[in-house]
Amino acid sequence: MISEKQEKEMIRIHVMGKTYEVPAGLTIMDAMEYAGYRFTRGAGCRSGFCGACSTVYRYEGDYRLQFALACQETAADGMYLVQLPFTPAPRAKYDIEKINLKENVLLQYYPEIARCVSCNTCTKACPQDIEVMDYIQAALRGDIAKTAELSFDCIQCGLCSMRCPADIKHYHMAQMARRIYGRYMSPVPQHLENRLQEIADGAFDAELDKLVNMSREELEEAYAARVSEEASAGSERSE
């Protein structure tokens, strides 16, 4: 993937205090791997979706700490790097079927949201550019729909919770809000209901049975010959 020009150009990065020369143009994660680090935790989809590789870094001479997903951000000369393997943050246990929307459930399960000082540090830490503080504030005043909407792009990386001076577990709380929203507040998608009914009625049983009874070779052959649906045509979801 590295072009010839980039291959010639090398940059200096500092990983946990030790300096390495790596080719320019690599992501933080690839650069660290190039330097000899191996990720068994703190790495996942490598496509910017799973949130496992959240990281902090700093540029030489910059007073600010920076935040990113290591699989997305390009390593730059003079970066001070470290990888965060995990965010310790407990998640509340609840039964989604036993939620009463009239009560401020988010506050019940995550009372620490009442400790928010509106410092906005969470928002500054978010690699997804989510208005994290605003959704915490929406949650505090019981606005589940707004919490769900504002937090929609969250990939659960946990950087917000690592930085919060009030010990809030933003991303778990927001996930609960989105689940409640999905279960009780969002309009029922009719196409999904129809499909579920078809499944329940056994419309796909025969096809599934056929797959289950195939040999490994037959399966591999079928997989290689599969026809992918075109991304735009027939898709009801945009983006």
Binding site: N104, L107, Q108, P111, A114, L140, R141
Partner: peptide, 11 residues
């Protein structure tokens, strides 16, 4: 208890 209380008290 939290259910009973308004935000203003908890904060």
């Amino acid at each position: 208890e939290i259910r009973r209380l308004p935000q203003i008290a908890i904060v």
